[in-house]
């Protein structure tokens, strides 16, 4: 319930960079003690727990305690060689990639149609494509479990794929739609006027314009799917497990720093991921929906 809820921001014009008001010089934290203090508390709440996770991962002891009795990298080795985690890691990655691809295949044409055409009931259709955002993920997971797995005997992976794809479609639609809205709507007409048939217009003009939006949507979708817990919770099977749920299970059973180590590994990978995101379209744009 984190990134996905970011996109519940009301539909509207993406902030037009040309309309950003000019910045005047404003005093910052130093001269606003109350706001500054609140801000510091806020950052501490967000960051400190994560720091402790990282610190705990380096402990040399056998149980989670702080401060640790010794320092060691052994739990990293343990996490990296723990079969259930590694299998789940691969599974989560496969699921995320596949779901992202499917969501884009469905969402990009939909965004195109919604932006570039008018018809009665368009609002309803748009609402339908965004509807997975307003149903709690746990409910969706349960529904799919009930209807697909218990009801139709579908394979675990298939049910997960359906659920994750549905979850990611609103991203594909919203994010690519936003990048389309930012482009000059007349470039497609210009291409037509110069003699390009509709399909050629799409491949030579529309698709390249969509690329930043598609990349953003892909990154956002991958992360959302990979980290997902509630939807995937009820859809785990003997043959297929996702990483966050495996970690959740592990916490119930054991109180050692294995999770801390695994989390730290994930954190490192995520930092790399964030850098990639920053180099492509811009970190704040993708994950915050903030156009600077």
């Amino acid at each position: 319930m984190t990134i996905r809820t970011v996109l519940r921001l009301p539909a509207g014009q993406p902030e037009n960079p040309k309309m950003t008001p000019p910045r005047t010089v404003q005093p910052t934290t130093g001269r606003r003690p109350v706001l500054g203090a609140l801000a510091i508390i806020g950052y501490m709440v967000m960051i400190v727990p994560i720091l402790f996770v990282v610190a705990a991962a380096f402990s040399g002891g056998d149980s989670l305690q702080f401060p640790p009795e010794s320092f060691s990298l052994k739990w990293f080795a343990a996490a990296a060689s723990y079969k259930p985690f590694m299998t789940a890691l691969v599974s989560s990655a496969q699921l995320a990639v596949l779901a992202t691809v499917l969501a884009l295949i469905i969402g990009v044409p939909a965004a195109l149609a919604l932006q570039r055409s008018t018809f009665a009931g368009k609002g309803w259709v748009q609402g339908l494509f965004l509807s997975p955002l307003i149903v709690p993920e746990l409910v969706v997971g349960l529904a799919l479990y009930q209807q697909l797995i218990a009801g139709l005997g579908t394979a675990t992976f298939t049910a997960l794929l359906v659920g994750h794809t549905a979850l990611l479609i609103p991203y594909a639609v919203r994010v690519t739609g936003a990048s389309l809205a930012l482009a000059d709507p007349f470039v497609e007409e210009a291409a037509r006027g110069l003699g390009a048939r509709p399909f050629k217009v799409f491949t030579s003009v529309t698709l390249p314009l969509l690329r930043p939006g598609i990349v953003s949507a892909a990154l956002l979708s991958f992360v959302t799917s990979f980290n997902n817990v509630p939807l995937s919770l009820l859809l785990q099977g003997r043959t297929f497990n996702t990483l966050p749920v495996s970690m959740l299970d592990y916490v119930q059973k054991s109180y050692d720093p294995m999770i801390a180590a695994m989390s730290t590994l994930i954190l490192a990978a995520t930092i790399v991921f964030a850098f990639i995101a920053e180099r492509t379209v811009g970190f704040a744009t993708i994950f915050g929906g903030i156009n600077k």
């Binding site: 990134i3 950052y43 967000m46 960051i47 400190v48 610190a55 970690m247 801390a260 995520t270």
Partner: peptide, 30 residues
């Protein structure tokens, strides 16, 4: 940078983010 720092946690799963509280608040916690 600070804005990015605030947004960054959204990239981590809830398990990772919440686990830190176990370290802090547990019986043998900090």
């Amino acid at each position: 940078m600070l804005l990015a720092l605030a947004i960054f946690p959204l990239l981590l799963s809830n398990v990772v983010r919440t686990y830190g509280w176990l370290v802090l608040l547990g019986q043998n916690g900090v």
